[in-house]
Amino acid sequence: MLLSTPRSSADKTAIKVAVLLSVGSHPLTGRGRRAEQDARALEMALALPQADAQLIHAGRLNDESEPALRSYLGMGPQQMTLIQQPKQADVLPALEKHLRQLGPKLILCGSRAEAGEGSGLLPYLLAEKLGWPLISGLAAIESVDGSSATVLQALPRGQRRRLRVKLPALLTIDSAAPVARQSAFGPARRGQLAEVDAPVQMDTEQEGWEVQPARKRPKRLKIIKATSARDRFKAAAAKSEGSGGQVLKDITAAEGADAVLKLLMEEGVLRVSS
């Protein structure tokens, strides 16, 4: 059933949290590094009180990926489970098998990988296979008890939404989550990579794909659909910048404040109800 790794007695009440980690790549140099969102997921797991964080990576161990993987260990945990998978393998069956064996209450991961296809479909596939609920775009975990977790989801414009989810659950982390701690060199060197063998299923569908370096997207042209020459000329000659707004001169402070308040109310940015 459970993996028989030695644990301290305090860990008996601990909530087992699996963190799925991937090898990231630097946006400019393309060099391997810890993936930004995965590192935030690990940070969130390490910051949870009474959580037993289990680090899991499915992939290959080679000279390129090892420093990236070890930089996760440099954040504090002593061990990472490495599920051996060749390149171009579909890691889903192997991950599913391992996670069923491990039986965590929570699975945390970034919302999409920084290398490969990077479609962000894996958490959804995994949740569907395991039959667990999934919450995307997580900003924080507020509390976890035996049967449910209360979390904050990141919305646009820095807004947050509170959700409660029944455990076990899969949570994907947004870039709004707290920044990952620094990775220390010593712990990264000392940490262990425990290799586990797993069934291999190749991803054959990718063979028909063409993968190229990203091309610059064409800029959309302003299409002018005018019926008369005058309209076309006006559209072409129009300045893109707004030609100045309303300027209120020689007025009292009260009148100025009224004008500003009116605009703020129109735009709906003022919250006077609470």
Binding site: S25, P27, G30, R112, A113, E114, A115, G116, E117, G118, S119, W209, E210, V211, Q212, P213, A214, R215
Partner: peptide
């Protein structure tokens, strides 16, 4: 794909 660095057709 790959965090915006690849185009997949």
């Amino acid at each position: 794909g790959a965090a915006g660095r690849k185009d997949i057709t």
